[in-house]
Design a protein around this nucleic acid. Structure first.
Lengths: 222, 222
DNA sequence: ATTATATTCAATAAATCTATTGAATTCTTG
DNA sequence: CAAGAATTCAATAGATTTATTGAATATAAT
């Protein structure tokens, strides 16, 4: 065992240490929720704290750990500091993690069924079918995420009515067409809530399970 | 704030908790090294402990954490217990993590340059060029990983000579051809060591940076 | 300058993670 | 069934992580 061999070991351990720093930054449910929110749109600390229902100080500390791992960037904007994902590949890694969790942990499906109690109640529509039916002017695509998220990027031809405002803005939707709702992706309930509301008013409804990232990753354009 | 709203929150937190369990399992340098070894080939606890230079008890505990997160499976085989990655997607996640780390943390490149001191000393060859030159019988593709790893899966037409045995088995290599060495991928030094040895004996050498997983992921067959 | 507001810092206690040690299990083999 | 070997368990101390507080900092507005 020469000195250079031990040296090599040390360098190897350095590398694995660096790799684990990324996993470490993601190894907390709150930080994953923050990443998920930032994958939809950049936001201030306060906005993130509100969405994730945690204290501002706690949110700030978690954001700083993500920043240390270079998973997010911050930028001052007047009184506020706006955080964003550091790169598209970061969102990709988060989606990948979620997918592996769903594949390996049976508990994920159970938890999802409990969270999205209406998961099997309404029709789902695939991206392909959606596109052809959009082209034939048969459906309206409805984005029910908060406005900032819509503005940060949305599906082609999507109309924005945040879930909170939907009840008061039903008049904006054509009464004769099928409404296809989508939100942040398969782990988001907003589109389910929208469909429930719309179906009660007589609309034919369907849901696109994909969110903006999944849509993009499947090779479709925005 | 109704009871059902709090309920939804609770379910959402359950989901993020599950996702973070996967990240948590990966959030340790030793466990990542174990995953990397298992991505090359299934192995017993003892074999893993030797390769990763850690105690058997410690290795066992880390493996059990990976097992709890369903990232690895174990199977008794006589006196031994053999561990393997639970699914191909697990290897994909590990590669993805490593890639993001390389992209986001500048320290990774520094550490890699220190670890692979001969990184820029020898010629690199791309998968495409390798395939055409193999077809034209101009090169020999040499797999210098341990035998178990070669047997678990290797590149087409690759010859196996583990790096430890290379010095004594030089006669098996054709003296007139270029030797293209590969090992576990861009974070492995075996192929560099092989090239150094072969070049000193007069062989023209080159390295394929890809390992078996990267090769497969790029769409090539085994 | 002073005030107000958004964010971060610092300090703390409770909880979790890690490597080490030696003993306990669980197989196979004779 | 007894011996031997591979693996796991249990207990421990030291290190790290977390949420919570209240104070400190930095910028915008007055």
């Amino acid at each position: 065992m020469t000195i250079s061999t031990n040296d090599k070991r040390w360098h190897k351990e350095q590398l694995y240490s660096l790799f684990s720093q990324i996993a470490n930054a993601m190894a907390n449910p709150h930080r994953l929720e923050l990443m998920d929110l930032l994958a939809q749109a950049p936001r201030t600390v306060e906005a993130l704290a509100n969405e994730a229902q945690m204290s501002v100080a706690n949110t700030s500390q978690h954001l700083q750990r993500l920043k240390q791992a270079r998973l997010v960037l911050d930028e001052r904007e007047g009184v506020y500091i706006r955080y964003r994902l550091a790169a598209p590949s970061v969102a990709g890694l988060w989606l990948n993690l979620r997918e592996v969790a769903a594949g390996q942990l049976a508990e994920v499906e159970q938890a999802l069924n409990a969270y999205r109690s209406q998961l099997h109640e309404f029709e789902q529509i695939s991206a392909d079918v959606l596109l052809t039916r959009l082209r034939q002017n048969e459906v309206v695509l409805l984005d029910v995420r908060p406005t900032v998220e819509y503005e940060a990027g949305h599906l082609p031809e999507a109309v924005s009515i945040p879930i909170d405002e939907l009840e008061h803005r039903l008049a904006e939707l054509p009464p004769d067409k099928t409404i296809v709702a989508y939100c942040r992706g398969p782990y988001c309930v907003y589109a389910d809530e929208a469909m429930e509301l719309l179906a009660a008013q007589g609309w034919p409804v369907a849901r696109l399970e994909e969110g903006v990232w999944e849509w993009q990753q499947a090779g479709y354009a925005l």
